[in-house]
Design a binder for these strands. Structure first.
Lengths: 189, 189
DNA sequence: TATAAAACCGAGCAAGCGCTAGTTAACCCC
DNA sequence: GGGGTTAACTAGCGCTTGCTCGGTTTTATA
């Protein structure tokens, strides 16, 4: 059987799966639950995906591709190293908020991927992190910070990824302000 | 059947379970795998725990109690606000390293807890975080930082918890140095 | 060394799991 | 209006899951 990976229907299904995986975890979500939420029978699921594992892969991949897109858009508009760092933080927050389900799944369901899938997604993640390496290096060359670059990158990404646990955009802190605070913390301003 | 929650044997079993849960996730670890790793048959497991869920609870609880113990020890030796902040960061790292399995499980298997268990552990976590609130507030009163205290707490905990993804103590950065860097970042030094 | 308690075994049940097979219904294009 | 494509359905197979339970062995205590 041949599957169309770009079909509109499939994208809808991936979004629904992202929500269930996000709320209950991959292993606790059965194909019957997925099918119910999608309004089809469990057997029909396998018309769109070869197996359950492929759904998880699709969820995480879609979130990552979207993240990289937004990141490139924002980076293209930023010029100074500090602006570019802010752009990265802002893009990261955007994807965590707009695409929250997929990103929570990406953060918390790594382990459920089989090795080949994981390897392929690690490549995507590395490509994303390359932007962070690059921009932090620019900040160093501009004399904005000193010290261990990879430590600074890990601290920033850790603080950002943790926002899924507490940050709600409807609160008193806007995403822009939050990104600004993060940049200030990295640059020790 | 009455279970002894403080038995030595049970603590051994909890440590073994922590390792399996950490490596493969709670849902993907079957009671048969647990029993195998423990050197007993799957039926015997239920002589020590009422059900599988109780094992998960015990793993997370043990990690948290240990964390709070170490934190109080280190805090008792620190006096200035900055020293106390360093003590918190250092204690957090210690528990993440010494008790890595339990803490990875705590971070990544929240969702698999039933609500009553989760509620009870949230109370423990809140008690732990109270130390952070307190010390960060001391730093503010001493004039070491300004701004949003809860934001600063979340950033610090996010960066610290993320270390389980990348930090290895055998590398070039000692836990003490890492804690120092984190304090510097929070205090914008 | 007798006795109670704790730890474990062996066999298996009922439910739920991912997934398959074969079929049907609606649509599109020549 | 027949052939192909896509999306859904029904039914259920084979296996694994968490957990039970009566009986046995090991360990600690007196």
């Amino acid at each position: 059987m041949k599957l169309n990976k770009n079909s509109k229907r499939r994208k809808e299904l991936v979004a629904i799966a992202a929500q269930l995986f996000c709320n209950q975890g991959y292993e606790s979500t059965t194909v019957r639950m997925l099918a119910d939420a999608m309004g089809i029978k469990s057997g029909s699921l396998f018309h769109h995906f070869n197996d359950k594992q492929e759904i998880l892969y699709a969820v995480i991949e879609s979130g990552m591709l979207h993240a990289m897109e937004i990141t490139q858009q924002r980076l293209a508009l930023a010029h100074t190293p500090k602006e570019r760092l802010h752009a990265l933080a802002r893009a990261h927050l955007s994807t965590l908020l707009e695409d929250r389900n997929a990103h929570v799944v990406a953060l918390y369901e790594w382990r459920s991927l089989v090795e080949t899938s994981r390897d392929s997604l690690v490549k995507l993640r590395d490509a994303y992190e390359a932007s962070w390496r690059e921009v932090i290096n620019e900040c160093h060359e501009a004399g904005l910070i000193q010290g261990d670059q990879s430590l600074q990158r890990h601290m920033a990404l850790g603080a950002l990824n943790w926002t899924v646990q507490w940050y709600r955009p409807e609160g008193k802190l806007s995403p822009d302000e939050l990104a600004k605070e993060l940049v200030a913390m990295v640059l020790r301003e």
